[in-house]
Design a protein around this nucleic acid. Sequence first.
DNA 1: CTTGACCTGTTATGATATTACATACATAAG
DNA 2: CTTATGTATGTAATATCATAACAGGTCAAG
Lengths: 158, 158
Amino acid sequence: MHTPAFHNHDHAHCTGDVMARAEEITRANGARLTPVRRRVLEILLEEHRAMGAYDVLQRLVAEGFGNQPPVAYRALEFLVDQGLAHRVRRLNAFTACMTPGESHAPAFLICRQCNAVAEAPAEGVRAALEAAAAELGFVVERANLEALGLCPKCVAQA
Amino acid sequence: MHTPAFHNHDHAHCTGDVMARAEEITRANGARLTPVRRRVLEILLEEHRAMGAYDVLQRLVAEGFGNQPPVAYRALEFLVDQGLAHRVRRLNAFTACMTPGESHAPAFLICRQCNAVAEAPAEGVRAALEAAAAELGFVVERANLEALGLCPKCVAQA
DNA sequence: CTTGACCTGTTATGATATTACATACATAAG
DNA sequence: CTTATGTATGTAATATCATAACAGGTCAAG
Ligand SMILES: [Zn+2]
Ligand SMILES: [Zn+2]
Ligand SMILES: [Zn+2]
Ligand SMILES: [Zn+2]
């Protein structure tokens, strides 16, 4: 079940679940969830927000890992490739995937007020996009769907 | 009528049309299409591809305009605000809008093979996105819809 | 004119991302 | 057990993208 970031939830629990799924997924893919990679995913899950590569790097340095940008970028790229994290281009940032493994085509909802980022199920959006692309003979392989607006809390305030 | 970048077309003609529309639009908005701004739009139209700010700047320098990044970024920002250009976040690049003025919510189709970028009409995509966001109580204000894949020509080759 | 809004030029710096190379580790063949 | 191979990590250097801050110029309204 999907737990939108906008709702309150037992975060320790959801983090644990995701880490367990991450283990399974990487093992199934024949990939290795090494200490840096695992730690980066944990950091993204703990913070539960979109983080820049350099933010992640700062955390890694504090824990004794390498302190050069490629350390962070490589781990993040790995996680994205494995479907364990997503890149939010609008923010030049990365965020842990809350529903890894489930074939999902998420859209990102970014609150311009409080900077919360939520992953929304977007099968319908993707279908519409593929249809629009097909009109022009274009074949979609990947897509970035990112919306800027107001989250429920900030809508309520306004 | 929308002329997808993927099709052959009379480009001089479409450039002229767009410039004329740009004049109207800025006048209607009480904004000024100054020499730098006009020239940047012309450059984007001539190149007919997504260009980085520094690519644009290089062209400007060659023509005697200021040679510092803000010169390009400011003109580009102006064009985006006026709806005369779009920013393609996936490419850190900008592209002229081929159908300015028409209230449109474009999606961008980016060919990973030949780097062509086309603007596709995406009312349906946007509607689906707003519906998905509404499920979570999120109100969409703007959205970036960017697809990576293969354009018709490159599909044919493969 | 003079004023005020806006535009342009320039310096400086900040933020994001990659290339290239060296070293270390895991795994499997010999 | 040793060696070869692929993969992962550490590090330096550099490339690329973007903005802040201020100075001077242009232009139209009053
Ligand atoms: Zn959570
Ligand atoms: Zn909010
Ligand atoms: Zn054209
Ligand atoms: Zn192509």
